[in-house]
Structure formats: C-alpha cells, structure tokens
C-alpha cells in the first residue's frame, strides 16, 4: 500500500517533470523560430525598402526617356494620335486602294439609290463593298461595331 503510493507518486512526478521540461523546450524552440522569422521579416522589409528605392531610381522619367530614345525610337504623343470618340476615326482601308483618309462617310442600305457623284472607284473593307464618292460633308456618327456586324450594308465613303 505504502510502496504502491510511493511508486505512483514517483511516476506522476516523473511524468509531470518530463512533460514540463519537454513543454519548456518546445516553447523555447518556438520562440527561437519566432525570433528567426521576425529577423527574416525585418530583413525582407529592409530589402523591400531598398528595392522600392531602386525601382524608383531605375524608373526615373529621364532614364526611361533616354532608354526610349536609344532603343525604341518613340516620339511624344501628338494630338492626332489620340482617339477622340468613334466619329473622329477615319476608316482604315487595308487594300491600299484608298490613300487619303476618309474623314466623313454615309451609310446606306444596298437598295437605296445614292445621289452623290460617283467617282467610279471601288474598294473593299473585308467583305464589305465600298464605293468612293465626291461627297458633300455628311457626318453621321454611328456605332462601328454594329456597322461591321451588318454584312448587307454597303458603305459609301466620301473624300475629305
């Protein structure tokens, strides 16, 4: 009875002791790990600061300009390069038959007679037939997308 008590107490004591110490070691290990991580975070943050400064340095507009002049041959944007809404866009003609940009145009259904002086020139934009006219300025803003979708519509272009 007495001996068994002592043995149980000793066991419990040993168990508690080892448990406590292993817990202590685990906690210390975690703390070391935490400190290492914190150091790493600090190093990374420091590196990020350096990289940000370097990024700003390399992206100096003067630097970009020098590089662009040297390698790209780009020039500053002129007002005519800027898109000013669909109506301001001239039609692009890929065939090369029309060299002057078409600034104004009218759109008519195929059956409707065209009352403009026919120049007799023909061109095509994709599948769409285009006839060139010496047209008075008719500005008719339209939705280019739906225009291109409608294949049965004939485009009648005018010259500036």
């Amino acid at each position: 009875m007495k001996t068994s008590h002592i043995i149980i107490a000793a066991l419990v004591f040993a168990l508690a002791l080892s448990g406590l110490f292993s817990l202590k070691f685990v906690a210390e290990g975690k703390e070391r790990q935490l400190r290492a991580l914190q150091n790493q975070v600090q190093d990374d943050q420091r590196a990020i600061r350096v990289l940000k400064a370097e990024w700003a340095y390399l992206n100096r507009p003067a630097n970009i300009q020098d590089l662009a002049v040297k390698y790209l041959g780009l020039r500053p944007l002129a007002p005519k390069h800027i898109y000013g809404g669909l109506p301001s866009l001239p039609w692009r003609v890929a065939s090369g038959k029309i060299d002057a940009p078409l600034v104004d145009f009218v759109m008519t259904p195929p059956d409707e007679p065209v009352r403009l002086a026919n120049l007799g020139k023909q061109a095509s934009i994709g599948d769409t037939e285009v006839i060139l006219f010496e047209a008075p300025v008719v500005r008719q803003p339209m939705d280019a997308i739906s225009l291109l979708m409608a294949s049965d519509i004939r485009l009648v272009g005018g010259r500036p």
Partner: peptide, 9 residues
Amino acid sequence: GVVLATNLQ
C-alpha cells in the same frame, strides 16, 4: 505613389 525620398540603412 512614386518614391521621392526614402530612408535606407
């Protein structure tokens, strides 16, 4: 947000 002045170690 372009960096104009910053502190480095």
